[in-house]
Computed example of a mutant assay.
Amino acid sequence: MAPPASPADYRRAIWLRLAAGLTFAIMAAGVKLASDHGAHVVEIIFYRNLFSLPLVFGWLLVGPGWAGTKVVRPKAHVSRAIIGLTGMVLNFQAIRMLPLAEATVISFSVPFFATALAAIFLAEPVGRHRWTAIAVGLVGVVIVVQPGGSHIEPVAALVGIVAALAVATVTVTLRQLGSTESATATVFWFSIASTIVTGLTMPWFFQAHDAVTWGLLLWVGIAGGAAQLVNTASLRLAPVPVLAPFDYLQLLWAVLLGWLIWQTSPTAATWAGAAVIVASGLYIVHRERALRRQVSAAPESPRPEA
């Protein structure tokens, strides 16, 4: 059994999670800029995976080595790759179509969808408290999207919501994989599979680019790979309920980058919806922490209602 995490581990994990949030925001800005320069979303995904491979290989060699790539359930990795690649396409498309801050806020609905999907497909207990938080959080998404309003195009909003649902599905899939597969194997084989699959499409999507666009594509690959690795490293040191609240700081980076690069600012509705979504997400994290404490204190008693 691994030794319990120390306060120093938690501090390092929080700093790593903050770095991951910043790097994800930088990657998203690179995706949007590359799209503005004419790169196709499938092309962007190919280079995001290709240019991140040196980081993945480096992490592998200085860490667990090739033994870390061993898999127990190959078919499960195939399913994860299909779902993950679909989610990446939708997520990048949402970033391309939406203002950066709004795309980030809508992505905050991932925990709501993930909790609901885990209850349905993994039979995880979800009581009235968390179901209520999920419902309130989705109301926050509606506030941001403003159906019938003119701030966000309906198709763009729909793509953002479906992208969040796809990423939530990836989250549930990773929980299933985690019972037998290491994080190293999951990251490695997804990176390889995504590069190969999108590489096969390059005869149709490859374009010649100027130096600036190539630089942006390199930016996306390095930032995306770094964010993935730093995020994984944070989870080695502390559990998700400890780290999840810090993910919401990514909105501040998205707002800052949106203002600096595109001179865009979130609307009042976006801020209001974000407040509702963040509050609901934090409540779900709070309930998860409380349940963990109760179960640890009374392991023989029935699991409290979530």
Rank of each mutant, 00 (worst) to 15 (best):
Y47D: 03
W66D: 09
T132C: 10
L174Y: 08
A185E: 10
V126R: 04
S194E: 08
P241M: 06
L243M: 10
A269K: 08
I26V: 15
G38A: 00
A223T: 12
R236V: 13
W262E: 00
T201C: 12
S35H: 12
R236C: 11
G199E: 05
A34C: 09
L174Q: 10
F246H: 09
V187N: 06
T169M: 04
L22G: 11
S182A: 00
V105Q: 03
L60W: 04
E124K: 00
Y10H: 15
L90T: 08
V105L: 07
A244V: 13
R48V: 11
M27N: 00
A223D: 11
R128D: 14
S179T: 15
L53D: 05
R48D: 13
P3Y: 06
Q93V: 10
W15I: 13
Y283W: 14
L282D: 05
P266W: 02
L98F: 06
L18D: 01
W15K: 11
T270C: 06
V89P: 05
D210N: 07
A13G: 00
S6L: 08
I26N: 11
E43Q: 00
V78W: 14
H77M: 09
A2Q: 15
A193E: 01
L257D: 06
V285A: 14
T213L: 13
V295I: 06
A269M: 09
L90E: 08
G84L: 02
Y283F: 13
L55D: 02
A238Y: 11
S6D: 00
H151V: 11
H37C: 15
V56P: 01
V145T: 01
I14E: 02
R11A: 15
